[in-house]
Each structure stands twice: as C-alpha cells, then as structure tokens.
Design a protein around this nucleic acid. Sequence first.
DNA 1: TTCATTTTTTAGGCAGGACTAAAAATAAAT
DNA 2: ATTTATTTTTAGTCCTGCCTAAAAAATGAA
Lengths: 221, 221
Amino acid sequence: MITVQPSASREDYLKAIYVLEDEGQGPVSTNALSERVQAKPASVSGMLKQLAEGGWVDHTAYRGVSLTAAGRGIAVDVIRRHRLWEVFLVDRLGFGWDEVHDLAEQLEHVEHAELMNRLDAFLGHPAFDPHGDPIPRSDGTVVDPRRLITADALLPGQSAVVKGVVDSSDGFLRHLDALGIGLGTAFEVSEWHGFDGSATIAGKGLWTAAVLRNLYVEING
Amino acid sequence: MITVQPSASREDYLKAIYVLEDEGQGPVSTNALSERVQAKPASVSGMLKQLAEGGWVDHTAYRGVSLTAAGRGIAVDVIRRHRLWEVFLVDRLGFGWDEVHDLAEQLEHVEHAELMNRLDAFLGHPAFDPHGDPIPRSDGTVVDPRRLITADALLPGQSAVVKGVVDSSDGFLRHLDALGIGLGTAFEVSEWHGFDGSATIAGKGLWTAAVLRNLYVEING
DNA sequence: TTCATTTTTTAGGCAGGACTAAAAATAAAT
DNA sequence: ATTTATTTTTAGTCCTGCCTAAAAAATGAA
Ligand SMILES: [Mn+2]
Ligand SMILES: [Mn+2]
Ligand SMILES: [Mn+2]
Ligand SMILES: [Mn+2]
C-alpha cells in the first residue's frame, strides 16, 4: 500500500526533520526527532518507515534520517504556511507574538491550492514572520539577505537592531515583552560585564547573557 | 473510556444532525445522516454510539438521533466558525462564494478559544455569511430578523431583493453568477408563466422555476 | 397477520498514529 | 576485547474512523 498524501502528522515530522537537519549537520537521529515532535522513539521509528516508503526521506536503520528533494519541498511549504498564518494572526488579528504558535501549528495543515497565495497577497507578501524568521516563497526558495549575529557578539559602543530570536518559546517572548524588547528595537551596548556575561545597554539598563545570546541583531551602518 | 473532546469528524456529525433536525421534524435517521456526512450507515451507527456516550446526542436504537443541549452548543459553534471563515475568505481574500465551502469545512475545526472572537471583530461582526445564512453569536444564539420567502412565491408586480439561497451547491452559485444574480440583487416579477413555472423579470429576462425556488428574497417595502 | 422490503445495527477488518515492553544494534568504557 | 550503557527498532496493543457482509428490527402490503 502506497501512502500518497502527507497527513498533518507526516507534515509535522517532515518540518521537524527539516529544522533539525538545518541546525545540526548530517542525518537526524530518531531521538532528536522524538524530542521535537513529542512522541516516543518507537513511534518515530514507525513513522520514518512510512515517510521512507512515501519517498519523502532517506532512512538507514540506526543511521538517522534525511529529507529527499520531495520531502524538503513539503517541509518548506509547511513552514511557509505556518509563517504566513502567524503574520495574519499577529498583524491582522492582534495576537501577541507569544500566542500564535499553537494556532499556526494547526492552520499550517489546511489543504488548499489557492489559499496561501491569496493570503500572501492579502498580507502584502511579507518577507518575515512575527519572530523574524524568513517566509519561504511559493517556489520553495528561502531568501534571507540579512547578516544576523547574536547580540552577545556585539562590541562595546556598537549599536544594532533586533531582527529575530534564537529561542522563540512563549516564555522568552513574554520576557522580551516585559523588557520592552521587540523586532525593530534599536540599542547600543555601553559596557560588557565579563563576570556574568550581561551588558549595560545605553538608556535601557542591564540585559542578561541569556537574553543577549537569544537575540538576532543586525549591526547599524 | 470516556470521550472528552469532539474531534473534527464528530463535529461534522453534530453539525449534520443539527441541520437535519432543523429541516425535518423529529429525530434524525441513520440513513439521512449517512447521506449527509458521506459515510455508510454502518459507520454512522458506530459514531452515534460514541456521540451518545459523550453526552452530545440522545440515541435510541432504530429510532433516530437528536442533539442534547451540549451537542447543540457544539454544532452551533462549528457553524459559527464555518460561516465566519467564509466571510473572511470571500470578503478579504476575494474568493468566489462558490469556492469557499471545502476550505471552511477544514478551517471550522481549528481549535482555539480566542481565535473566532478576534476574527469576528476583525470582520466587523458580520450578521450573515456570503450565502446569506445567519452567523450564530458567540453565546450560541442564532438571530435572523429577516422575513424570507422563496422567489417562486412572489406575485406579479412585486419587487424583492435576493437575501440568500436554498441550494448553496457550487453549481447553483455559479449559475447565479452567470445570470448576474447575487446577494443584494433587486428585481421585480413582471409575469409568471404557468406552463413551466418560469417568470419574466423586469429588465432581466427570464428566470426559470429552478432558479426562483432556490432564491430567498425579502419583499420590498 | 404474515411476508417482503427497507432501515439499522452488529461483527469482523483495515489503515493511521500513538503507546509500552522487549530485543537488537551501536557507542562508550573498562 | 569485553562489558556496559545508550540508541534504535521490533512486537504486540489500543483508539479513531472508516469499510463490507450479515443479522436483526421496523415498516408496509397483501
Ligand atoms: Mn503542525
Ligand atoms: Mn514564527
Ligand atoms: Mn468540517
Ligand atoms: Mn455558507
């Protein structure tokens, strides 16, 4: 029996493999995937067999898994849908950037050829989602011309603008809200404190190492 | 084992029972439901057992099924979500009223407490969907102050405005598009043709009986 | 009322996706 | 090179939601 259509569950697995492949190098382990999709390793093993049969992944037992071109195409499309929905939810419906993940996680699986193109146009063809992540184009390419570094790599006196987050967990996002930090926030590092990795930010007080290393920024000028 | 959450499938069944209960009188038959949800009667029997266990329907074997208050609440909410999404798709994304049904059929099952209230506000609290059907309020009430009749009940010389459709199949909707008939179309019956039930409409040519009996209208004045 | 027809339910299966427990392969440590 | 620990897969179950085939109940005619 040939599996023809990627179900919601399969789409989530493909997306997870895509992300993990991007982060690490080489094939993705069953354990890492299990952690990511919140399922037991045994369940992942079963799903990988399906995905391999469908031609979406290459899987050698005990040796990890990697996406085929077909699998990557689907993964990128799911990510595109996820991020476009996030833009809609935040920009149009007024949700906070910490509230939209679970919702987009469902909406990304709605199946319709024309829908995402129309939503994309309606939103004005956004290039980035509310967390600063690039939105793949409908042809499957992912364009990101930005030169981002994490804020903990800035030198004293350098000024920069927040463009994204490394950790996009609700908790971190809400913490940034509390600190008044969001996408577009401009700041300048006055002084580093080597003892704990924190830094004084001109006019904004102290930012901890945990915050700084999770901010993607673009240096001014 | 108690079933706690209505799945997408269960929601579709509850919605179907709601509509059929509204149309006919008395409990809904397994066969009618089977037709509506496009599943075999045997499958419906199985699902009814689940729904009864969940407390969403009352079901006596061989005697038909009816919604409990809990079941009706869910059904109305699914309909609310369906119609709000339809408004979004037609009014904001520019889909035709004949293109949105399948899409709304998926979107109606997205689970999120706050989403529909925000979408409702974003759309300006619409009272009717693109097919002229009333959108239930978030408190579960369905308000429709209109006095609608089907156009085949109009008298010669009466003028009226199209407010809805009896048959909302894609085919009928596209036929109306071809004839230039839509919600808000005002017209006046010049003359009835008893032979085939068609009528001459002032300045708009001939409308057939099949069209007239499927239009909900409000009489002018 | 009895028999034929229609409707509905039960019985038995299958596929998808999850789980636990146990076995097998790989990796790490003596 | 063994032994031990970790990772991954297999085996066996369960639940959901559908199916077909067969049995049972209700309906309607004769
Ligand atoms: Mn998802
Ligand atoms: Mn995002
Ligand atoms: Mn549906
Ligand atoms: Mn509608």
